[in-house]
Lab assay of single mutants.
Amino acid sequence: LEELEQFAKTFKQRRIKLGFTQGDVGLAMGKLYGNDFSQTTISRFEALNLSFKNMCKLKPLLEKWLNDAE
């Protein structure tokens, strides 16, 4: 859980630094990986307001997006 919290915090900082909005991330993930995510979902991930199971599902996809974006 602590690792997920740290990743969510780091993800948000890096996303902002790269100049992407939460909506941008959701759209890009849909185009790149075929998984559409709403701005709300990205927001809830960053705020740790998703279930643990959903957080765990999203984390590898967001890590991949972040690596591709950088």
Rank of each mutant, 00 (worst) to 15 (best):
E46Y: 00
G23I: 11
Q6M: 09
K9C: 06
K9Q: 05
G34R: 10
K64L: 07
L61V: 12
L50H: 09
M55K: 02
S38C: 15
N49S: 13
N54H: 13
R44M: 10
K64E: 11
L62P: 01
I16V: 11
L50V: 06
A28S: 09
F52M: 11
F45S: 00
N49L: 10
D24K: 05
D36E: 10
A8G: 03
T10Q: 12
D68I: 08
G26C: 09
F45P: 00
C56T: 14
L1K: 13
K64S: 14
L27M: 13
F52N: 09
W65A: 02
G30R: 14
S38G: 14
L27W: 06
M29C: 06
E5V: 11
E2L: 10
E2D: 12
D36I: 12
K64D: 09
Y33I: 11
L48W: 05
E5C: 05
N54L: 12
G26V: 12
K59S: 06
E63I: 03
K31A: 10
S51L: 01
T21R: 04
E63Q: 07
R44F: 03
Y33D: 05
F7S: 02
G26S: 14
F52C: 09
N35D: 15
A28M: 09
Q6F: 08
A8S: 06
L50W: 04
P60F: 05
D36C: 10
D68A: 11
F52I: 14
K64F: 04
N49R: 07
E46D: 01
A69S: 13
R14N: 03
E3R: 03
P60K: 07
E3S: 06
K59F: 05
T21C: 08
A28L: 09
T40G: 10
N49G: 13
Y33K: 08
A8M: 03
M29W: 01
I16P: 00
G26Q: 11
M29T: 04
E46I: 01
L4W: 05
L32K: 15
K9I: 15
K31V: 05
L61I: 06
L4F: 02
D36G: 06
L66Y: 05
W65N: 00
G23A: 14
F45G: 00
G34K: 09
L4S: 03
R14Q: 06
A47P: 00
L66S: 04
R14M: 06
L18V: 04
K53G: 11
N35A: 12
F7V: 15
Y33R: 06
L1F: 13
P60L: 07
T40C: 14
F20T: 03
P60R: 05
A8C: 08
F20E: 02
I42V: 14
N54K: 14
K57L: 12
L32E: 12
M55H: 03
G34P: 13
K9D: 07
K64R: 11
L32S: 04
D68Q: 13
A47C: 15
E63N: 04
N35K: 13
E2H: 04
A47N: 15
S38Y: 03
T21E: 04
E5Q: 05
G30H: 07
A69G: 05
Q22E: 11
R14H: 04
L32Q: 12
Q39A: 14
L58S: 04
E70G: 05
K64P: 02
Q22G: 06
L66N: 01
K57I: 08
S43L: 07
E63M: 10
L1A: 04
I42C: 02
S51M: 02
I16F: 05
G34H: 06
Q13G: 06
L18H: 03
F37W: 13
F52A: 14
Q22P: 13
F45R: 00
F37G: 03
L50Q: 03
F7A: 02
K9W: 05
Q6K: 15
K57C: 13
D24R: 04
E5D: 07
R15Q: 01
R15G: 00
L48N: 10
E2V: 07
F11S: 03
K64V: 07
T10A: 09
K57S: 12
L1D: 05
W65R: 01
K17L: 11
E70M: 10
K12S: 09
K57D: 15
T21M: 02
F52W: 13
A28V: 08
L66W: 02
C56R: 09
K9E: 06
R14Y: 02
E46T: 00
Q6I: 12
N49A: 11
K31S: 07
L1W: 11
F11Q: 00
K12L: 04
F7M: 03
D36F: 04
F7G: 07
Q13N: 08
E2A: 10
F7L: 03
D36P: 08
M55A: 11
R15P: 00
M55C: 05
F52G: 08
A8K: 01
L58A: 08
F11K: 00
L62G: 01
L62E: 00
D24P: 01
K31Q: 10
D36M: 05
I42A: 01
K17P: 00
K53I: 15
M55S: 06
Y33N: 07
K57Y: 15
S43D: 04
L61M: 08
L27A: 15
K59M: 13
W65Q: 01
V25L: 02
L62T: 02
A69H: 09
I42Q: 00
F45A: 01
T10I: 14
Q39I: 08
K57W: 09
E3Y: 04
M55D: 02
L58R: 03
A47E: 15
W65S: 01
E5P: 01
T40M: 08
D24L: 04
E2W: 09
M29V: 15
T10V: 08
G30L: 11
